[in-house]
Design a protein around this nucleic acid. Structure first.
Lengths: 225, 225
DNA sequence: GCTTGACAAATACCGTATACTTGTCAAGTA
DNA sequence: TACTTGACAAGTATACGGTATTTGTCAAGC
């Protein structure tokens, strides 16, 4: 069973090990190699997904396309579902980088930050052919449940990362405010992707920013409640 | 094809006809009978859904359970999908009545109105065994897509009704504000049902109210801009 | 740590045949 | 006019035994 339910992308993990063993940067190669391997597997899957739905792609194919044995794949990800889950998160990370960047580019104007962040996400998501494919296949076995019914992992992960980004840019913000904002932002973003508004991405983003704006401004400004 | 794409529940339709023909309340029986028939069919479907997933229920069964011929069913709803769509909306209407009531009970305090409305929806939805069944069946052919991927009709309908309720209770609110609030409220509500927060419904509702609060207060108060 | 080879169990595919369901007729009844 | 009955083609679900593939997990070897 291997019990690999950890979904977090934690590149800071070796730090603890290093602190425990003594010599600084004790095993960065190990971790780096592991990360490289995982990326190769994700990239291979992405390549395959470009002309075939997820249900029709086998683990053996992914391993072969990455130039790796099937067992190495299973050693990294416990099961097919685990791989799918983490793959979606890896893809989402690309979007989230844009979002974080948008936030940090507008630290002086929180409302614009929200608007820019949502717009960055929406254009990145709608332009990505992979997202279209994800939303297209409606049947079971596809990856669509991972952003709708079983989207808890994605939601938790993205929301936590947004939380960090906000606390980073606006130190005055309260924990609860940041969490609520992250959660809501992600829920709305997922909703907009799975059933878009009739607006353009920019208009949608501005609507969301209008709505969240008053709350964000208050949260960013006032330190004490 | 019968082209019955109209999803609105419009009991005001005969009004126009009456105004055109002259005699007031010209054909209320016709409409009333139609509505009764539709309700019977919906109720029959609900009964059947209590022990069988949607995919395993045939149109013939629904008709038989309602004591009506299959063709009458097809005369009312163009297709199986149409029926499912309108059925979901009919069920949603029960929840929406609670929501509207909650809003009108707190017209003096918009934030409490949002909180009460969301909580009313969440408890009604989580208590309803039908909702649990809807969310349970993950496969294709179920009704779950109607509140996730293909939820546009439900979203538009609910959002429009909320819009009316808000304009009703807070005449000062701007059209755009009411629309945006309705849209966002429904998107969040659907998100909370399909993947609940770890909180209780009450806590979830209060979080949502906290977040929408500043916007709502501003929208309700200021008539200009 | 990765690879190769092998394994049981579960699942997918296949071709065929049968049964059922959907959506739409037309004719009949009150 | 609105509903019912009976019938229809087209599409889809089911059953079926048999075969092939896939998943998830071994152990042996470099």
């Amino acid at each position: 069973m291997r019990a690999s339910a950890s979904v977090t992308t934690d590149p800071q993990a070796p730090a603890a090990a290093a602190a425990a063993t003594g010599p600084a940067a004790a095993t960065p190669y190990r971790e780096a190699a592991r990360e490289l391997l995982r990326d190769s597997l994700f990239d291979a899957a992405r390549r395959l997904l470009e002309d075939r739905p997820w249900a029709q792609i086998t683990m053996a194919e992914i391993a072969r396309a990455a130039g790796v044995s099937r067992q190495t794949l299973y050693a990294q990800f416990g099961s097919r579902d685990d791989f799918a889950q983490q793959f979606v998160i890896r893809e989402g990370a690309r979007f989230l980088e844009d979002v974080e960047q948008a936030i940090h580019a507008h630290l002086d104007d929180p409302v614009r930050a929200v608007s820019a962040a949502m717009e960055a996400f929406l254009v990145a998501a709608t332009e990505d052919p992979l997202v279209s494919l994800l939303l297209a296949d409606d049947g079971t076995g596809g990856m669509l449940p991972l952003v709708t019914t079983r989207s808890r992992p994605v939601l938790d992960w993205a929301s936590a990362r947004l939380c960090v980004a906000m606390r980073d840019g606006w130190p005055a913000i309260a924990d609860a405010d940041a969490e609520l904002l992250g959660d809501t932002f992600v829920r709305l973003a997922l909703s907009y992707v799975t059933m878009p508004r009739l607006d353009s991405p920019r208009a949608t983003a501005e609507a969301a920013a209008d709505l969240l704006g008053p709350y964000v401004e208050r949260a960013v400004a006032s330190a004490g409640s």
